[in-house]
Design a protein around this nucleic acid. Structure first.
Lengths: 233, 233
DNA sequence: AGAATGGTTCGGCAACCACCGAACCATTGA
DNA sequence: TCAATGGTTCGGTGGTTGCCGAACCATTCT
């Protein structure tokens, strides 16, 4: 009820290892079935079911029934943002030495991944930086960007569905999202999602199954150079 | 070790009610003694000691011995930011009806409070908005502000120690911090702290003991009108 | 030196809760 | 209609951990 208990309740929910792995998987922005989540969490279906209903109850997750499957997804991008923020904290938690070790362990994840439904990691940052440098997006207000006229043209040229992104209901159009590995913001919101979608549709990138990791294809690397003027390690 | 476990570990630390209330108290940005923290958490000194050492171990808290007292404070503003982010999530957790009830319960906290060491709540937002509207600060990059020339003069006039804030080591100068009750950014960083300090030094505001709540004095209300052109409910 | 205060360590207890086995419901396909 | 698959509910069990009493260390005050 009181604000401190609400804090501890929500934190305690994320504090269980099984639930944390489920949330981590759901950070890819997609909806996953209960059994899939049970598998990645390393628990049986019954146990997973309990966890999932508790998180739905607490409005961390949303459930959608389809056939005999039940799909779960993060309830809102706010939840995704809070998780990223905790991850950022967890990243600074350890001493620099072991931090490097942790990053060595998952260099691909650090290079490119999905954050909810948009691109994050070095690639996400590179895209965002390129758009900023070219004057295609400009900061508007504290947590948003504006798409400039040249940005509109640019998006049209590479095939980003801007009208569709603008149509996306009450959702933010171009939002700043803090990247936990780079510790700098990348572009999110419906425009960020549309850009990521372009990467997947044009074969520039592909999602690895059961993971937030994204692999940049060869044509993707070329596109980063030609369209975004970015060179990646 | 792996990133998901680091997430769950940090979340689990915040997930205990006793630790959560300690962290809430420490959100006022000050250092508090172990017994003070034990009292607000409603546990005995031994229990509190255990909690505190665990949080120091996890780099959430920093400890400083002084005489026979031991003072604990948040280890970094990153920790404060993560807590605010979780609180924001906890705020949206409940249905709108009960959310209002929770806010009714603590209208003063929502009106004005400290967030780490700067002002938050309606007053924090009002100050930030006024500075923006007058062109005293401008967004610089994704999460910072620049103090303009007129802003420099304005600060000097009302007695904000800008040189001192600039001298503040490696700390960010003017940072954007998300306000969990207003869900909009207010000014933090060393400049935000200097502004809050001015409010306290000039008697515009005073901290309520054992709480993050800040009371705006009558002269503070007048100052909000004359210096910031803001009217508060 | 002795007493008082603030803080920590240790050991045992109790409550909580994550977990699984088993049984049960719902949807799909044969 | 009957099996198969996906999911949830229920009950009992075990491990974790938060908690306090008691003893112990450190600092300050008389």
């Amino acid at each position: 009820m009181t604000t401190v208990n609400a804090l501890s309740e929500v934190a305690a929910l994320m504090g269980d290892p099984a639930r944390a792995s489920m949330l981590s998987l759901l950070m890819d922005g997609r909806a996953h079935t209960a059994s899939e989540l049970a598998l990645t969490a390393g628990v049986t279906a019954q146990t997973a079911s309990g966890h999932l209903s508790r998180m739905v109850e607490a409005n961390l997750l949303a459930a959608r029934a389809q056939g005999r499957n039940r799909f779960y997804r993060l309830a809102s991008s706010d939840v995704a943002h809070a998780i990223e923020s905790l991850m950022a904290l967890a990243g600074t938690r350890a001493a620099p030495a072991s931090m490097h070790a942790a990053w060595r362990r998952d260099p691909d994840l650090r290079f490119c991944r999905t954050c909810y439904d948009h691109l994050a990691g070095q690639v996400g940052i590179a895209v965002t930086d390129a758009l900023t440098k070219a004057g295609h997006i400009e900061p508007k207000g504290p947590r948003d960007w504006t798409l400039t006229d040249t940005g509109e043209l640019f998006c049209q040229r590479i095939g980003v569905d801007v009208p569709g992104a603008r149509r996306a209901g009450s959702r933010h159009f171009a939002r700043q999202c803090l990247d936990w590995s780079e510790r700098r913001p990348h572009i999110s919101g419906s425009l960020g999602a549309a850009i990521a979608d372009t990467f997947f549709r044009r074969g520039w990138a592909e999602k690895l199954r059961r993971s937030r990791t994204v692999r940049l294809t060869d044509s993707g690397r070329r596109a980063m150079g030609s369209h975004f003027g970015a060179t990646l390690s």
